[in-house]
Design a protein around this nucleic acid. Sequence first.
DNA 1: AATAATGATACCACCACTGTATCATTAGTC
DNA 2: GACTAATGATACAGTGGTGGTATCATTATT
Lengths: 133, 133
Amino acid sequence: MNLLTRNTDYAARALLYMGGRRGQRVSTADIHRDLKLPRPFMRKILQQLQKEGYLVSVKGYKGGFTLALPPAKIRLIELMRIFQGDLSLSDCLFQKKICSCVAVCPLRRELKAAEKMLVDRLKGVTLADLMKK
Amino acid sequence: MNLLTRNTDYAARALLYMGGRRGQRVSTADIHRDLKLPRPFMRKILQQLQKEGYLVSVKGYKGGFTLALPPAKIRLIELMRIFQGDLSLSDCLFQKKICSCVAVCPLRRELKAAEKMLVDRLKGVTLADLMKK
DNA sequence: AATAATGATACCACCACTGTATCATTAGTC
DNA sequence: GACTAATGATACAGTGGTGGTATCATTATT
């Protein structure tokens, strides 16, 4: 059980890195050099972040990326949504028929509640929060 | 992101099923018939539960399993530990060097805290709780 | 003896995660 | 204008874990 996949983790690191250099243009090469993250993989991740509106990109020589939003508006939970898909965890693994079984649904209910608590907490975490510490 | 793998999920269902028939001996065939879960997979799961001391097994004709513990002593979190391994989530994906980077560790701290909250909650959930509802 | 169960264990298939590779395009530099 | 260094788009690839199946041995009841 891991809350974050590498996708999300790398994205968070990259954004933290960029948050520390606001105004500067950052290339995948910079991130690769300073954070030792695999370069082509980072490219793909940064491109996704750009598509999602979190980064502004500039092509060409001395191109790169800059944050499109203030760090306080970048939420960890949103990165998870982008790279890990829908957060509705704990969906019933079964057809409705079986799911309506009395023995089964209390389990879902518990998991859903635990999930909600977790997601609610993560909703509160922004890039700015992480930068402060 | 799914809190439970099928392993754990099936195990919980099977235990709930058996919790509803305490004293009776239950075979994988019974579970397969009533819960529509894949039979050989269930066998493996039940064997693991037996090894871990959650079930008592009887071999031979009319053999099967019974709960080895009262439902109040069977905790969801322990099933997760058995089938999903160590619950220390959110381990740093990096070598210590990089992990000590200022930009990185606040992320771990947040995730660890969220994880702890989740695990603490799940620690409170027993089979008996699930049977009540 | 036949049957129906578990014990142990090896094997297998699929898929998501974690990348890599390539070609096209763009923008500065010389 | 050619060169270079960046991104855009996209296709491809390796690998490990999840989710199973299969088989043989053993045991107990009929």
